[in-house]
């Protein structure tokens, strides 16, 4: 299937929590091999959206397909916001990364080879014999991203992956993630509460309205990759970001 064709298709999605209608008749397509950021007001259901796509949260109604298949038959990766809780502290970093391969009953020699191939490809310099609690926050999140990537997923979901990191580390991790994206061309869906980050990383920004969430806008970010710190002050980038902010503010105020 060509890049840019619909990879994840969402049709007639409905979800409510108690009395709050979060989604009602929601349709959306996520294009293959592209990076989509999801941005919107607090509590509008950004994370709920990717959790429903990933099958972590049940939907009330509607259909979600990934490449025409249900999520159960899909090879996907998921990166949690809280890396400290998401990694297994009793396993060394290396064993954490190879754990999903173990679940797939891949023999040890092959597991090792695949992790080592991933490490080489990404140019990771972390000492993977260490335990997660011996690594810095950024290194831990990098390990958990590698754990998600080692299965060579069709889609990678990231739920505010850098929000627990300091600014310097966030900048570094953005570039790591961009590099991973360019390296692997995996379809990536990022939930972010940082507009700059959402725009910087994305091919397309999905802007959601307040509850019940509707598509406030779907903005293309045409900047060439690899993007760098210079991109942040590029007039076109600033214009796109400004436009997103405007839409966001209108969305927060509501209709």
């Amino acid at each position: 299937m060509p890049d840019g064709a619909a990879h994840v298709t969402i049709r007639g999605l409905a979800k409510r929590f108690q009395d709050a209608v979060v989604y009602e008749g929601f349709d959306f397509d996520i294009p293959r091999g592209r990076f989509v950021s999801v941005f919107g007001p607090n509590g509008c259901g950004k994370s709920t959206l990717i959790n429903m796509i990933a099958g972590l949260v049940p939907t009330d109604r509607g259909e979600i397909l990934l490449g025409g298949k249900s999520v159960k038959d899909t090879n996907f990766g998921y990166v949690f916001q809280n890396y400290r809780d998401a990694l297994f502290p009793w396993l060394r970093a290396f064993d954490n990364i190879e754990y999903p391969l173990k679940l797939r009953h891949i023999p040890q020699a092959q597991r090792r080879a695949r992790v080592e191939r991933l490490v080489a490809r990404l140019g990771v310099t972390i000492d993977l014999r260490r335990y997660p609690y011996e690594l810095s926050g950024g290194q831990q999140q990098l390990v958990s991203i590698m754990r998600a990537l080692v299965v060579e997923p069709e889609v990678l979901f990231l739920d505010e992956p850098f929000s627990a990191l300091d600014y310097e580390m966030t900048l570094f991790m953005r570039d790591q993630l961009q590099r991973l994206f360019l390296e692997t061309a995996t379809t990536m869906v990022l939930v972010s509460h940082d507009l700059e980050e959402a725009v910087y990383l994305a091919d397309h920004v999905l802007l959601l309205s307040r509850r019940p969430a509707r598509i406030a806008d779907y903005v293309d970010v045409p900047q060439p990759r690899p993007r760098s710190a210079a991109t942040l002050s590029d007039p076109e980038f600033v214009r796109v970001k400004g436009h997103c902010l405007e839409v966001f503010q209108r969305a927060v105020r509501g209709p």
Binding site: D85, F88, Y99, L103
Partner: peptide, 14 residues
């Protein structure tokens, strides 16, 4: 047991 950790295992297909 931490909910995120259980969820992480589940999401990896455990």
């Amino acid at each position: 047991a931490r909910k995120t950790r259980l969820l992480a295992a589940k999401v990896m297909g455990a």
